[in-house]
Design a protein around this nucleic acid. Structure first.
Length: 674
DNA sequence: GGTAACTGGGTTTTT
DNA sequence: CCCAGTTACC
């Protein structure tokens, strides 16, 4: 009890009011760096102190890291199930509930959760049949990944296909009918094969909550629902929350509409703003005392922060004055890379670890040139965001093999696994899958039929793999299964990839991580819902003596902080990104993203603005609003930053006469035509 | 008929 | 770097 009193003691007045709020629904509007996590943890502790059973408290987050972090702080590590708060990401919680009642959802108990890449693969197989072939009538048809994006956008925002395409994907307007066909096929395919995608997890949970009989039972599981990062919910998640607490009692939502940066996956801060109209008795408590950044940084943050009627908030500095952000105008990208390195090294020599500094970029490729410069100067770094570990080709190969073992009816996995072998392309792979009749029990038993059908070379290679996977399927422990699968892949991978040693080492870590799960199925779900960022992510924390700079996308940096933050590429087209400017809402989101990036800095913030090199074509209207934002940011920067001009990399020559012309003249004189 | 190897154009952010 | 289209090989 004294320990829990301690949790409340460290809170400020606003935080304590939020943690101990009684009665109706509560919205905690928490600006960046205002101690929102601690407040939410304290609220959970307070609810327990009031006699609420921990297992009847539901905590919903968007990342597993956030869930683990809060659950670890809110409860003793070795507590029993009843003593434990029920928490996780929306998707993970949905999965637990659906898995526990699979039969009610007409799903096999071991249903497969497919990630967005798998969804795109399924759509790819449906494109031809629905008239989305390569180039149609001179127009490029949407790629499989784009189809999957559009599908998910429709589902997660509960919006008609035609509208989603018209507003977000105008170049796909001629293909709306074909897309509808693909989507119908996609849904049918998933249902036939017992597959569930990320959107389905939420849709199924919502359907159960809305059901006249199942709804009350599921609702009755919890007395309190705590939702973190509420500005990031999509339409389906908002509806799930509403169905969990229709009257609003016991509901606590924490969020900041100025930090909504996930519109591209269907999130919309208007759900947070709508809370007040959904619940007449909603209490709003603002957390505005910032314990992260110096006043210099917050001066800039507060002018960037968009304000919304009724939810205005301005951050106050609790950590003192500090330096004003420094805006470095650079001649070009190379100058920018040099300027960043110079400052990183200077701070390092002044005693700061590399880990205390981060470079945050809008798009993963914005750090390409910088990475070359860092390597040249021997500055170690780790990059977050961008390509994920599970997207690497060899990892997908391993996961496909594991899925074949876990669920032999998974033809997507079979397709990838078979094509891994030399000489086996789409056509042969399809034939093998048909011959094996993988949807029927015991497909491995029909391998001799498939073997007879294949050319000798291919039959031999695939045969070895299939035999091994049969062994894996019969193996007792998860660990044994994982190592057998790995062994099965050795030869095909060695034939395919030049750098087998590196890739195989990755897979050994993956197999080790999978071995820790109770079953292969659980390991696969875990990996789909929470893909590790890198191979080292799997191996636990890096060694303490390793010191490296962090490069991260602005999106991946959300919720994190560093003493020193560098923000490069602050130039039209990069920040704000011209990909985001097809709608006015996209422009607003770019501003919020910039706000998130700026508020990551504790002590020092460096902004770098190189001259713009190239430019995508933009409609006149877009260009207009674009310039407005740029002017706005420029104005903010002028008023709240120190501005310096970085000198160009080398002196600019100003020859008295045209040099190229003189060379040409000399050349011409060699063959006498000059 | 089917696969591999090459080429040229487009590239945001991720539970 | 991924995908679509082309070409050359079995």
């Amino acid at each position: 009890m004294t320990e829990q009193a301690g949790v409340l003691d460290v809170l400020n007045d606003d935080q304590r009011r939020a943690a101990t709020h009684q009665g109706g629904p509560l919205l905690i509007l928490a600006g960046a760096g205002t101690g929102k996590t601690g407040t939410l943890v304290a609220r959970a502790a307070w609810l327990r102190e009031q006699g609420m059973q921990p297992s009847r408290i539901l905590l919903l987050t968007f990342t597993r890291r956030a869930a683990d972090d809060m659950l670890a702080r809110a409860q003793p590590p070795d507590s029993s199930a009843a003593e434990r708060i029920f928490g996780g990401t929306f998707h993970a919680v949905a999965h637990r509930i659906i898995r526990a009642h699979a039969e009610a959802f007409a799903l096999p108990p071991e249903f497969t959760v497919i990630d967005p890449a798998d969804a795109a693969d399924v759509m790819d197989t449906l494109r031809d049949a629905n008239g989305l072939v390569g180039t149609t009538a001179g127009r490029r048809t949407p790629r499989a990944a784009t189809c999957a994006e559009i599908y998910s956008r429709c589902v997660s925002t509960s919006t008609q296909l035609a509208e989603v395409v018209a507003t977000g994907y105008p170049w796909c307007v001629p293909f709306v009918e074909q897309l509808a066909g693909v989507f119908t096929g996609f849904v049918g395919y998933k249902r036939r094969h017992g597959l569930v995608d990320f959107d389905d997890l939420l849709l199924l949970w919502r359907a159960a909550l809305a059901d006249a009989a199942a709804g009350p039972a599921l609702r009755g599981l919890f007395d309190a629902v705590l939702v973190d990062e509420y500005q990031d919910v999509n339409a389906v998640q908002a509806e799930i929350v509403r169905l969990l607490r229709p009257a609003g009692d016991g509901l606590t939502c924490v969020g900041d509409d100025a930090q909504a940066i996930y519109a591209f996956r269907g999130a919309d801060p208007s759900h947070l703003r709508a809370l007040a109209s959904s619940y007449a008795d909603l209490s709003v408590i603002r957390l505005s005392r910032n314990y992260r950044s110096r006043r210099g940084v917050l001066g800039l943050a507060n002018v960037i922060r968009p304000q919304f009627d009724g939810l205005e908030l301005s951050l106050s500095a609790e950590r003192g004055e500090g330096h004003r952000p420094q805006l470095v105008r650079c001649h070009d990208e190379a100058t920018q890379a040099r300027e960043i390195c110079v400052r990183i090294l200077a701070d390092h020599e002044a005693g700061l670890r590399f880990q205390d500094q981060a470079v945050l970029v809008r798009a993963a490729h914005h750090s390409d040139l910088l990475e070359i410069e860092l390597a040249a100067r021997g500055i170690p770094y780790v990059k977050y965001g961008g390509l994920r570990f599970t997207e690497a080709a060899h990892v997908k190969d391993f996961l496909a093999a594991a899925r074949v073992v876990a669920n032999p009816a998974d033809d997507l996995a079979w397709f990838r696994l078979l094509r891994l072998h030399e000489g086996v392309g789409p056509v042969l792979a399809r034939r093998v899958i048909e011959t094996l009749q993988i949807a029927e029990p015991q497909p491995f038993a029909r391998w001799p039929d498939a073997e007879a059908m294949l050319p000798h070379r291919q039959a031999a290679a695939v045969g070895v793999t299939v035999q091994q996977l049969m062994l894996a399927a019969e193996a007792g422990s998860t660990a044994e299964r994982a190592t057998t699968i790995l062994a099965a892949l050795h030869d095909p991978l060695a034939a395919r990839y030049a750098d087998v040693a590196v890739r195989f080492a990755d897979l050994e870590r993956l197999a080790d991580a999978a071995a820790a799960s109770p079953s292969l199925h659980d390991a696969l779900v875990q990996l789909a819902l929470d893909p590790p960022l890198s191979a080292s992510d799997l191996a636990g924390k890096p060694r303490l003596d390793d010191d490296y700079l962090i490069i991260s996308t602005m999106h991946s940096a959300k919720g994190l902080e560093w003493p020193v933050v560098h923000l490069p590429q602050l130039v039209d087209g990069a920040v704000p990104s011209d990909m985001a400017l097809t709608t006015p809402a996209g422009l607003e989101e770019e501003q919020r993203l910039f706000y998130v990036a700026v508020t990551r800095a504790r002590d020092r913030l460096y902004l770098y603005a190189p001259l713009r090199m190239h430019h995508h074509r933009l409609a006149a209207d877009d260009r207009h609003s674009y310039a407005q934002l740029t002017r706005f940011l420029d104005g903010a920067a002028q008023a709240h930053c120190e501005v310096t001009q970085a000198s160009p990399p080398r002196p600019v020559l100003r020859p008295a006469a045209p040099l190229a012309a003189s060379v040409d003249r000399d050349l011409a004189s060699l063959w006498g035509t000059g």
